[in-house]
Every structure is written in structure tokens, then in C-alpha cells.
Simulated scan of single mutants.
Amino acid sequence: MKQVEIYTSPLCGYCHAAKRLLSKKGVAFVEHDVSRDPSLRAVMVQRAKGGRTVPQIFVGETHVGGSDDLHALDHAGKLDALLKD
């Protein structure tokens, strides 16, 4: 399974929803809390091609987008294929 990274902040409901979906699917992920380390926000914005809101989700080198994008991929049946090596 590809590595999943999610940039979050603690009070973000969309972040919690994205993490719940990933956990429900049994997907391990690396969480980067941008509220605790401002330099992480700059990395996130660069990787997300200007995306400034959290969450920003990456599967391998693929930028998925935010929680709504992640849920849309799952609903369309495309998330599992993206997660595979």
C-alpha cells in the first residue's frame, strides 16, 4: 500500500472526517499537524500547488486534495485502486 500523508490541524472537522475514512478502511497514514509547526504549512502549500486549507492529502506522490476529494474518490470506487502499490 502506498504511503498516505495528511496535513491537518486539531480543530478541523474535515481533517477528522478524512482520518475517520482512512482508519475505517484500515489505511495507515502519517499526520502532519501544521498548527504546531509553521514550517510544515509552507511545505504543505508547496506540495499542494498552493492549497492552503487543511486537510491536504497525499497518496504516494499523488495530491488527492481535501476531505471532500478523498470521499468523492471513495464513493466513485477509485480510492482503493489509488492506495495500491
Rank of each mutant, 00 (worst) to 15 (best):
L40C: 03
I57F: 11
L22K: 13
G50H: 07
L83D: 05
L83H: 05
R20L: 08
D74H: 15
C12I: 05
D33M: 03
D37C: 10
G60C: 10
R20S: 12
H75L: 10
E31C: 14
Q56N: 06
A28R: 05
R52Q: 08
R47Q: 13
G50V: 03
R47I: 02
S39F: 07
H16N: 13
D68I: 02
D68G: 11
S39T: 15
K78L: 14
S9W: 00
D74R: 03
V59W: 09
G51F: 05
K49R: 11
I6R: 11
T53M: 03
L70M: 09
E31Q: 15
Y14I: 00
L73F: 14
S35K: 08
R41Q: 10
E61Y: 01
K84I: 00
E31T: 13
L70E: 08
D68N: 14
V34G: 11
V45W: 06
D74I: 01
K24H: 13
P38I: 07
L83M: 06
G66D: 02
G51N: 07
C12F: 07
L82C: 12
V4S: 06
A72M: 09
L83F: 06
C15P: 09
M1V: 11
V34N: 08
R52P: 01
A76S: 14
G51H: 09
C12A: 08
A28E: 11
A17G: 05
H16G: 04
D80S: 15
L79V: 06
Q46K: 12
T53Y: 03
P10S: 08
L40T: 06
L70F: 06
L79G: 03
S67E: 04
D80M: 09
A81L: 09
G13T: 10
D69L: 00
K49W: 01
S23I: 01
V34R: 05
L22E: 14
G13C: 10
L21D: 05
T62H: 15
T53D: 04
V4H: 11
S23L: 02
G66V: 00
Y7L: 00
P10V: 07
L79N: 04
K2L: 03
D37N: 15
H63K: 12
V30M: 01
P38L: 09
A17P: 04
F58P: 10
S23F: 02
V30S: 06
E5M: 05
A72W: 08
R41E: 09
I6V: 12
K49M: 03
D37H: 12
K78T: 11
L79M: 04
H63M: 11
Y7H: 02
G66Y: 01
P10H: 14
